[in-house]
């Protein structure tokens, strides 16, 4: 007993000394003023392999290229949004990113109350009444979805012989996490893309109801593969890892989302419908640095290289030139505004 107490006392004493020591070290901080860019995640937190991670990568990029300091804070519940954003502003941030459409109200409030700090919201829209130090950043996910759909639509039928991964059933699938706006835009774009090149193709769709349930994602993909789907597009965050796994096991192709997911399973991921959040984050910080930051909504799309599909990597040799040409042509048409893509299921009559 006594020994135990003594030990505890020792540990506590050691702890105090250590912490005192570490405190002293930090006192000597460089005085020079560096650019500070920071972000607050929504309740999904880091590690979502989606917009939170994307924004975080953007900050990494900023750190690397602009030499700025960065700071990331994860929100745990809705009530955290405003204090986190304001807190980051008070910490001396030059720009604060709010990530995810759930933070809309919060970031606008924070911007209003901290007019000297710039704010930006990923997946958030800025209107006329909103403060001028706030920039909303939106993406045309449907464009990425559309391009992925074009590839899928052609590969599953016309060029199915290019690889044993494809069959002659003319079926593709989409696995959704929860049915929320960016997810819907990806899905709807994908369907239109498929139909544009392959009107008879059947597009299956399953909503798993979760962004973290790998097992469910895998099961949804397997159910589609059973029905002949040979390309499955995942728009399900971490649940999508299960989708890619299922495709890998069954020897069919998968299409990743948000970032280039080729690394997850190089022999399975045909391409990814990307959304260049890191790049847009970088652009926003750069604008702050160059004093060119303006409020309002910035919608990034294919013309900014913010949407689109990733390289084919291992499938480079599988995908025939005709498909690549078609992709290039569609991309050009999109940039030229020649293609109208619906963004909701309702518009497709689903």
């Amino acid at each position: 007993m006594k020994k135990g107490i003594r030990l505890a006392v020792l540990i506590i004493a050691a702890a105090m000394m250590l912490s005192v020591a570490s405190c002293k070290k930090e006192e000597k901080k460089a005085e020079e003023k560096k650019l500070l860019a920071s972000m607050a995640t929504d309740v999904g937190g880091l590690g979502d392999k989606s917009f939170n991670d994307g924004a975080n990568q953007g900050l990494e990029l900023v750190k690397e290229k602009l030499g700025a300091d960065v700071k990331v804070v994860e929100s745990k519940q809705q009530t955290d949004y405003v204090p986190n954003l304001i807190g980051l502003a008070e910490d001396g941030s030059d720009i604060v990113f709010a990530v995810g459409f759930l933070m809309e109200q919060a970031v606008k409030e924070a911007a209003k109350n901290n007019p000297d700090t710039k704010f930006a919201g990923i997946d958030i829209w800025a209107g006329d009444g909103d403060p001028s130090n706030f920039m909303g950043i939106l993406y045309k996910e449907h464009e990425s979805g559309y391009l992925a759909g074009v590839v899928a639509g052609m590969m599953t039928k016309e060029y199915a012989s290019a690889s044993p991964k494809f069959n002659d059933k003319n079926v593709v699938g989409v696995v959704l996490g929860m049915f929320i706006p960016p997810v819907e835009k990806f899905e709807v774009g994908f369907i239109q893309g498929v139909k544009s090149v392959n009107p008879d193709c059947k597009v299956l769709s399953v909503t798993t109801g979760s962004f973290v349930d790998q097992a469910k994602g895998k099961e949804a993909a397997l159910a589609m593969i059973e029905q002949g789907a040979d390309i499955v597009f995942q728009v399900a965050g971490l649940t999508g890892l299960g989708v890619i796994q299922a495709c890998k096991e069954k020897g069919v192709a998968a299409i990743g989302v948000d970032v280039d997911q080729s690394a997850v399973a190089p022999d399975t991921v045909l391409t990814s419908a990307v959304k260049q959040i890191p790049r847009t984050v970088y652009l926003a910080v750069e604008a702050v640095k160059n004093n060119t930051f303006t409020g309002g909504t910035k919608v990034y799309g294919i013309e900014d290289d913010a949407t689109g599909i990733s390289p084919f990597h291992e499938f480079e040799s599988v995908v025939p030139q005709a498909v690549k040409d078609k992709v290039a042509q569609v991309t050009a048409d999109m940039k030229a505004g020649k293609i109208k893509i619906e963004t909701t299921r309702a518009a497709l009559g689903m």
Binding site: G47, V212, D213, K216, L238
Partner: peptide, 12 residues
């Protein structure tokens, strides 16, 4: 076994 990585909250 079912998958190849751990995800927080994957028990769902």
């Amino acid at each position: 076994e079912n998958n190849v990585s751990f995800t927080e909250g994957m028990t769902n």
